[in-house]
Design a binder for these strands. Structure first.
Length: 466
RNA sequence: GGCCCGUUCGUCUAUCGGUUAGGACACCAGGUUUUCAACCUGGGAAGAGGGGUUCGACUCCCCUACGGGCUGCCA
């Protein structure tokens, strides 16, 4: 058994689409789990729509997602001479021919057929079997001489055997009149030349596979294993589009989802391994198989993503979490934290990582170490600091001055004050929370005091008294 | 229009002819609780519809409905 080679081949027409990211992930998991290679090729043969910025965005997205590719990024456009060469080889083999029909002629043919009630006009070029002696001195395209009868069977690992009737397919153009290759030819040539053994891609290419398989056959090349995966839909079940919100992968990073959670979630979208829900790369690589891919399109479910995200944040070691959080600041276009803020974050991490579902939530809860005196109060915090509460806090202050700065000691001091006023701990914790963080949603007040230290804690309480 | 693909709880899915159709997220109720989150207990919730095949169909076949894809000298 030879080595497995997969590839991801996006068009550089914008950002990295979330569906594309999943396709890339599947290819990556399949190759990496079997000691194979995962290649990256940019399908930039459409010069008008391809931009270097888009290519950069795709590489950036893949890098963030943690999908590393083997070798250099291949530009499909760079292979245009090779593609043309193959087209001419097909010509020489008699599996392709020059077609001098103009676009206007073809258009007119389609119009006429439709007017006659033919719903799907198949253009049959008059040049298919023409005598070269009759060739005019005019621009021409090279068309593949596709089989006119019989059927083409795509043996797909996800969709099963898909049968296409050959007469429904016209002789597709492989080389345009300006000598540039068409995508359908370029993919096949590139996949063959790159040694791709498994083509895992969106099922919008399922029909294309038939024509591509014809090219493989025409050139006498080995057909790769096909696996056409269903597309991802929006939460409403419709095709994913911008109105659904996040379609670009970078938006997910900006929303504060860790890459590991994205990999986990995306892997489970349209693929399953029994009841496994929460897992890391090691398991995913080991478990991933083409057989486990579902046949129906899956919808995006942000609630589930969020849940997985929270689990991953909680399960990640502090040391690994920090660089990700710092990268998040950049992705979310937040000002880079200062050194003291970073230090505070490190000390506070234990108190926030298990209660944050995203990095956005995490830094919101870590606000108490990111802010500095005087603490500004949000509305809810200000509301909890009524005169009664303030006076209770002022009673607390002297006791905190002398207590040993340990969690259980702090707890008993605060509980003691609450008891003295015949109230629950919550009645004291609320205002205390506000005093320390200026917010109503924070980690445990005791954790905050521990992180802040005696001096800062007292200073924040004292600010309130003034 | 034609061709191709799909259809299990609200969502992601398990099941690969014989199960009380399982899990996860979400939701509801209760518990725990210093806020949030987490956690514990319990609950409601599914095989699109119709025909076959079979001793027996969510699983196999056909039809319908619905959804998606393709139908370019785009990728």
């Amino acid at each position: 058994m030879s080595e497995i080679v997969t590839r991801f081949a996006p068009s550089p027409t914008g950002y990295l689409h979330i569906g594309g990211a999943r396709t890339a992930l599947f290819n990556w998991l399949f190759a990496r789990g079997r000691g194979g290679k995962f290649l990256l090729r940019i399908e930039d043969t459409d010069r008008e729509r391809s931009t270097p910025e888009a290519t950069a965005a795709i590489l950036k997205g893949l890098t963030w997602l943690g999908l590393d590719w083997d070798g250099d990024v291949v530009s499909q456009f760079d292979g245009k001479d090779r593609h043309a060469e193959v087209a001419h080889e097909m010509l020489a083999r008699g599996t392709a021919y020059k077609c001098f029909s103009t676009q206007a002629e073809i258009e007119a043919f389609r119009e006429a057929e439709k007017a006659r009630g033919v719903s799907y006009p198949v253009f049959l070029s008059p040049w298919r079997d023409a005598d070269p002696a009759t060739y005019p001195d005019a621009p021409y395209v090279i068309r593949m001489k596709a089989p006119r009868t019989g059927q083409t069977v795509i043996d797909d690992k996800v969709q099963g055997k898909v049968v296409i009737q050959n007469p429904t397919l016209d002789d597709m153009i492989v080389l345009r009149s300006d000598g540039t290759p068409v995508y359908m030819l370029a993919v096949v040539v590139d996949d063959h030349d790159m040694g791709v053994t498994h083509v895992i891609r969106g099922d919008d290419h399922l029909n294309n596979a038939a024509r591509q398989q014809m090219v493989y056959d025409a050139m006498g090349w080995k057909v790769p294993v096909w696996a056409h995966i269903p597309l991802i839909h929006g939460p409403d079940g419709k095709k994913l589009s911008k109105r659904h919100g996040a379609v670009g992968l970078e938006e997910y990073q900006a929303m504060g989802y860790p890459a590991a959670a994205m990999r986990n979630y995306l892997a489970r979208l349209g693929w399953a391994h029994g009841d496994a829900e929460f897992f890391g790369d090691t398991e995913a690589k080991e478990w991933f198989s083409l057989e486990g891919i579902g046949r129906a399109p899956a919808r995006l479910d942000f609630k589930k993503l969020e849940n997985l995200s929270g689990q991953h944040i909680a399960a990640t070691a502090d040391a690994d979490l920090l660089p990700e959080i710092l990268a998040f600041f950049g992705a979310a276009k937040l000002p880079e934290p200062s050194q003291p803020q970073k230090d505070g974050l490190v000390r506070a991490l234990f108190s926030v990582k298990e209660r944050a579902k995203t990095f956005t939530e995490l830094i919101e809860k870590a606000h108490f170490v990111l802010t500095s005196r005087p603490i500004s109060m949000d509305e809810k915090a200000a509301k909890s600091l009524d005169p009664v509460s303030r006076s209770i806090l002022s009673e607390l202050t002297p006791q905190l001055q002398s207590v040993s700065w340990e969690r259980d000691k702090l707890e008993s001091v605060v509980a003691g004050v609450a008891e003295a006023h015949v109230m629950g701990l919550g009645k004291v914790a609320g205002p205390l929370r506000a005093a320390l963080a200026g917010r109503a949603v924070t980690p445990s007040v005791f954790d905050m005091m521990l992180v802040l230290g005696r001096e800062e804690t007292l200073a924040r309480l004292k600010d309130l008294a003034d």
